[in-house]
């Protein structure tokens, strides 16, 4: 799918955050404190203010919000360009993951203006002034914008994301018709950036047990694969009040997927399959 804009539907302007206190349910170590303001570049004519979440594990202090001034005439059009510009020209300790800079690796997923997306495919001009950059929501933070994805990858590992076969290997290969191959479209493209899982309120409250949209989308990618012979165990593994049914079809996942995929639909397919095998 070609991404024409970094905004799939216009974002809410009237309510930027839920009306809850800033430190609502936030444990002491996660409270965000005031950071420093870095000097604006001299002689710059077009400047955008970026407020960025910082956390330095070596200092042992709480996370903070630093303010940067980016010279837009000296910087590429994407948010990732701005982050690289800051790292090169202002503060070399600013830490974030990035690799492909074209939306296929999923490394630079972060929360920009309150929604998750890839920094490399979101235009700076799409962000409010000041632009607010947080790491992916609801993750343990290793440093600055780098989240610890150990748990969500452990959940992904749990669904055994590889082909399960029970019949002996054929002489050449396991065949699949063009129509059967088409069933994988919209599911196999997932890049595991975890924008969706991080944006899912149900995963915020029950992430230790609920598998989350990214993993459930991947689970459907294997369930719907005509060559896979492990659907019985796969559905057994999913059928659980928390693992699957904690999904309440909020659909923040589909709303935020930077690849235009549909985890919400994949989960509906799974619920339907589980119903189908018993009715």
């Amino acid at each position: 799918m070609i991404i024409h804009s970094s905004d799939q539907v216009s974002r809410a302007r009237f309510l930027k955050r839920f009306p809850v206190p800033k430190n609502f349910g936030v444990p002491a170590e996660s409270r965000i404190v005031q950071g420093r303001t870095w000097p604006a570049p001299e002689g710059a004519r077009r400047v955008k203010v970026f407020k960025i979440y910082r956390y330095d594990p070596e200092r042992g202090t709480n996370p903070r919000i630093d303010t940067f001034h980016v010279d837009l005439d000296d910087c590429g059009p994407m948010v990732l360009d701005a982050l690289i510009w800051i790292k090169n020209k202002v503060d070399s300790t600013l830490t974030f993951r990035r690799s492909c800079r074209e939306g296929v690796c999923g490394s630079c997923a972060m929360n920009m203006d309150g929604t998750n997306w890839l920094a490399c495919t979101r235009f700076i001009s799409d962000l409010d002034a000041p632009a607010v950059i947080y790491p992916l929501a609801n993750m343990r933070i290793i440093k600055d914008l780098v989240p610890d994805l150990t748990h969500v990858f452990a959940q992904y590992e749990m669904i055994e994301p590889w082909l399960h076969v029970k019949t002996p290997d054929p002489e050449k290969e396991r065949l699949q018709s063009a129509e059967e191959r088409k069933q994988l479209d919209g599911y196999y493209e997932c890049i595991l950036c975890f924008c969706c899982t991080s944006g899912c309120p149900s995963h915020w409250w029950n992430g230790n047990r609920f598998l989350g949209p990214a993993t459930l989308l991947q689970a459907w990618r294997w369930l719907t694969d005509s060559r896979d012979e492990g659907s019985e165990e796969r559905l057994d593994r999913l059928e659980d009040p928390f693992r699957l049914y904690r999904c309440h079809t909020i659909l923040n996942c589909t709303r935020t997927c930077p690849k235009g995929l549909n985890p919400g639909k994949a989960i509906a397919e799974e619920k339907k399959a589980i119903l189908e095998r018993r009715s």
Binding site: M158, P241, Y245, R278
Partner: peptide, 16 residues
């Protein structure tokens, strides 16, 4: 282990 934590008590195999 992270994997053990993710598995926790295992699937209830019910919920539908």
């Amino acid at each position: 282990s992270p994997f053990g934590s993710a598995i926790w008590l295992g699937s209830a195999k019910t919920g539908v």
